[in-house]
């Protein structure tokens, strides 16, 4: 754990996590408009968490002095979101997907960086569980959040 990681690895993993966060923020746009009430409030809250992590990553990667991946105007969604069920299904997918990118940060970081990555992985996993419950998907949990399936 005291081993110094090759900076390129951690930097690449964090840059990948940043692009995943950009995509998640984008996806919550179409998700949010198909939800109402508590679901919509949840979507806002989840999106805010992705935005906070995006901002922190942009700062962190900028401080390193290298290239910071840029956000794009749009991202291809895996399926069209036309109703609540599809919105919830996409929300689950987005959180699982983002969790996988944060999990990939863990092996190449240590200390505070790893702790932040674990907190992000955990937050995404918990949101995936909340969205599965909202969608009445069972079980609401997976055994290894973020692990490539």
């Amino acid at each position: 754990m005291s081993r110094r990681q090759a900076p390129a690895d951690a930097r690449q993993a964090l840059a990948d996590a940043l692009t995943a966060e950009y995509a998640a923020i984008y996806a919550y746009g179409p998700i949010g408009v198909r939800l109402t009430g508590a679901d919509r409030r949840g979507a806002r809250s989840a999106e805010a968490a992705h935005r906070a992590r995006r901002d922190a990553l942009v700062l962190q990667l900028s401080a390193g002095g290298g290239q910071v991946p840029a956000d794009r105007a749009g991202y291809a969604l895996p399926f069209p979101v036309t109703d609540r069920a599809e919105a919830l299904r996409l929300a689950v997918e987005i959180e699982e997907r983002t969790a996988a990118f944060w999990r990939a940060v863990l092996p190449v970081t240590s200390g505070a960086d790893r702790t932040r990555a674990l907190n992000a992985l955990t937050d995404c996993a918990v949101w995936a569980t909340r969205w599965r419950r909202a969608a009445r998907v069972t079980p609401v949990t997976v055994a290894f959040p973020g692990r490539p399936g």
């Binding site: 969790a99 999990r103 990939a104 863990l106 992985l121 996993a125 918990v126 569980t129 949990t141 290894f144």
Partner: peptide, 16 residues
Amino acid sequence: ALLGSVAAARATHVEA
């Protein structure tokens, strides 16, 4: 990575 998944899974159990 594995330990991160274990920690995250336990957090989702609290939620569940």
